[in-house]
Design a protein around this nucleic acid. Structure first.
Lengths: 226, 226
DNA sequence: TTAAGCATGTAAGCTGTTACATGATTGG
DNA sequence: CCAATCATGTAACAGCTTACATGCTTAA
């Protein structure tokens, strides 16, 4: 982490603004990157990794898109960068959020998200289940349950790490961990719920032989009382 | 609903196949349309409405995209259409699924969905909450809770209608309603869970004055026991 | 008369994915 | 020696949104 030494390899472009006083905005991906930069400066490569885990469970992007967006962010004055010698043919750029970036980010959080296009392939398949072989459906839901349980374990691990860091309590409201804490809470509950749902569906389909009768229990009332 | 009268306004293109025996496939949107057509023939316009509610909660598309995709589906032999006099300058087309379409659809359901790009703006905002004004966050989550509760009521209504149609029990496994039933179950549970989560977060933020202490209860343990 | 609903389509543009390209360092 | 990791970028393409275009029928 080289400091602000005015070496000739280091160029800094921070806080640049457009002439007019209009509120500068960016795409949602831009805010996703800004929220990461607000926690710590990083290269585009590092941001890509953080967009894999843990953030990747609610926002993803490819590295090609990240580099392009970072470029736009620094053009808009929401992020700045500092060059450092890189491993490859190009120098690497350590990006950080600017004051204007912090303002834009804080502003954006308060704005209620507009109706977003939803695309959930698993639910689409569940909806079409009646038209498929019971055996294929069984495999589909069994595999899906595993995915949810793996994710659940992953979340739980991060959750434990965070709560331990704050003596088992809630992180302070202005601490970045507060955001992780709140987000993880929903993630954990939803993964658990989804896994339970898979079990419930498997029960509904029955164990095999195409008998039509669910194995046991009272699966027709749902995973929880309705 | 004009029957198969060989009137000169009616052209039928069903079951067309490409020469080779290769398995024909389409985009996920294509399967979304096929699953609707498997339930009942429809015009592109009608499919657009059905993609709004109830299917819109897990798959959406604009009409321009729908018409283009239907064209591709009929080119691929997965759907066929029959022309009928339309209200506008063009005749309307009533699409239906072909045998090849049913096969492709049934096949597709069994294939586990690959890792899909997730983009949840609300969770991104929750993750960034620590950097925002408590008041803005409060408004955000209060509004969000309303959205979830509205959706919950909507789901519940459809759920009640479906279970009533099957004497309060589970629809038969090969009935389209079985797909709706299973899908709604997860939808209802997740909307309820999300609403509870919003309440929990609001409790964590506190009722006002920036005091930092949650209102009452023991919100730090989460909406359910962990 | 005017707006909303029915009904289909084209075109421009933005977003995002996949593939291509380069090259140093470190670990097996 | 080979593969993986670090690190940034370009180009082609697919998917999706928004806007434009047309015109009938029915209800307010």
């Amino acid at each position: 982490m080289r400091a602000h030494t005015p070496a000739d390899t280091a160029r800094v472009r921070t806080g640049r603004r457009t002439g007019n006083g209009s509120r500068m905005s960016t795409s949602t991906l831009g805010f996703a990157l800004l929220t990461l930069l607000a926690r710590a400066p990083a290269t585009g490569y590092e941001l890509g990794q953080r967009l894999d885990r843990p953030v990747g469970y609610f926002w993803t992007a490819q590295h090609s898109q990240i580099h392009a967006e970072l470029h736009r962010l620094s053009e808009a004055g929401l992020a700045g960068w500092e060059a450092a010698p890189g491993p490859g043919p190009r120098e690497k750029k350590i990006y950080s959020i600017t004051e204007a970036g912090r303002d834009a980010l804080s502003d954006w959080v308060g704005q209620p998200p507009g109706a977003q296009p939803v695309r959930n392939e698993m639910l689409l398949k569940a909806y079409t289940m009646w038209a498929a072989e019971p055996d294929a459906a069984r495999r589909l839901f069994a595999g899906r349950r595993e995915t949810h349980l793996r994710r659940l374990a992953d979340y739980q691990e991060i959750w434990d790490r965070i709560t331990r860091a704050h003596e088992g309590g809630v992180p302070p409201r202005t601490h970045p961990d507060f955001g992780s804490y709140v987000t993880l809470r929903l993630g954990i509950d939803q993964e658990r719920e989804s896994a339970t749902w898979c079990t419930w569906v498997l029960d509904l389909i029955g164990t095999g032989d195409d008998a039509g009768a669910p194995s046991d229990g009272e699966p027709e009332t749902g995973p929880r009382a309705t």
